[in-house]
Amino acid sequence: MAAERYEGLADFVKRGRGALAAGPVALIFAEDEVEVESTIRHHAGLGFRAIVLFAPEALALAGEAAELVHRVDWDTRAEGAVTAAVNAVIGAAPGVWLYTCYNAEYLFYPFCETRSVGEMLAFHAEERREAMLAYVVDLYAADLGRFPDAVSRETAMIDRTGYYALARPDPATGHPRERQLDFHGGLRWRFEEHVPRDRRRIDRIALFRAKRGLRMLEGHVFDDEEMNTYACPWHHNLTAAICSFRAAKALKTNAGSTFDIADFKWRGSVPFEWSSRQLLDLGLMEPGQWF
């Protein structure tokens, strides 16, 4: 299906069913113009059957990137805008694998250099899994003097250490939920005084199969609790990583934090190699039983 532009979410749900006919489908939410084209190209290279870009009407996009996406005019910064869009797509595409991310974010999964996202999800589905946990691994420029918005793909750094998990309590019982954890680390941990408490988690259910009645909730979790688990009861499953400039960009463009941060580098910083092997070696994603 040729890429097309839609005048809002309702128009896309009405006319864009062809883009959602077969998955996996990537839903990319552009909050600004930073690295939108590289985000599109990266995910196109992973083998998504379709890429849907939700972006403000004024965002400029041309050339190859424009040809690769189905574009939906959408105020991505409005309260609840991402959740509303995802839930509308879920309702329009039952049975289809979906993926969600923002601009300046890049999906990695085990062996992604040689295996397509469709192959990976086919294996995951064979293990009777309908969702996949992804860790948001913060990227940041090595030199904030040269890159004041903290975004530089060529000099990107990541934290090799400083990640941890806490039990996720069930509000109804106060007991930990089975096979669910709240994961923390990266810039949201090191600069937590500048990050609201409800935005400090780095876990996200980023890949999932749509089904009738399913709803995504705030915080990138779902109303089906089994879909929020990191593994099935009998063994470890695949997990993925979303390498993201989003936190760094926010911390350096927000007036409340930018002057308090002279550098993101610390003793745990290492150059990002843009490879799944580095992320596997650092324990930032899990191959499960997939080899």
Results as ranks from 00 to 15, higher is better:
11 D>T: 04
21 A>I: 08
11 D>K: 04
94 P>L: 05
101 C>D: 04
200 R>D: 03
280 L>H: 05
103 N>W: 01
221 V>P: 00
6 Y>P: 03
135 Y>R: 09
45 G>F: 12
208 F>G: 06
240 A>W: 07
270 V>H: 14
20 L>F: 05
238 L>N: 07
231 A>C: 15
266 W>A: 14
181 L>Y: 10
97 W>P: 02
196 P>T: 09
105 E>V: 05
262 A>F: 12
173 T>W: 14
66 A>M: 12
251 L>C: 11
137 V>G: 09
246 R>E: 13
59 L>Q: 12
46 L>M: 11
68 L>N: 06
87 N>S: 12
71 R>W: 10
88 A>S: 15
269 S>R: 05
241 A>Q: 07
85 A>W: 02
97 W>Y: 02
115 R>H: 13
291 F>R: 12
234 W>R: 07
150 A>D: 02
132 M>G: 04
104 A>R: 12
171 P>Y: 12
76 T>V: 15
109 Y>G: 02
215 R>F: 03
212 R>E: 07
92 A>E: 04
118 G>S: 13
34 V>L: 08
277 R>F: 10
212 R>Y: 00
229 T>H: 05
236 H>S: 06
179 R>W: 00
203 D>P: 00
280 L>S: 11
94 P>F: 10
288 G>T: 02
2 A>W: 09
264 F>W: 14
275 S>I: 09
174 G>A: 10
75 D>C: 11
201 R>W: 00
162 G>D: 02
23 G>S: 11
152 S>C: 15
121 L>F: 05
175 H>R: 15
231 A>S: 14
156 A>L: 15
37 E>F: 15
38 S>K: 13
105 E>N: 02
7 E>Q: 10
196 P>C: 07
243 C>D: 02
187 L>A: 08
132 M>Q: 15
224 D>M: 12
118 G>L: 06
235 H>T: 01
141 A>Y: 05
19 A>W: 06
126 E>S: 12
88 A>G: 15
47 G>R: 02
215 R>S: 04
177 R>C: 09
114 T>A: 09
5 R>C: 01
283 G>C: 14
159 D>S: 11
135 Y>S: 04
70 H>C: 12
183 F>Q: 06
229 T>A: 10
213 G>F: 01
199 R>C: 11
164 Y>Q: 11
56 P>K: 09
138 D>V: 06
222 F>P: 03
233 P>W: 05
105 E>A: 03
252 K>Y: 00
245 F>Y: 02
263 D>C: 07
152 S>N: 11
59 L>W: 13
195 V>K: 00
104 A>F: 08
54 F>A: 06
21 A>R: 14
130 E>R: 15
167 A>I: 05
161 T>A: 06
235 H>A: 03
75 D>T: 14
217 L>D: 08
16 G>Q: 11
32 D>R: 07
240 A>T: 13
72 V>P: 10
107 L>R: 14
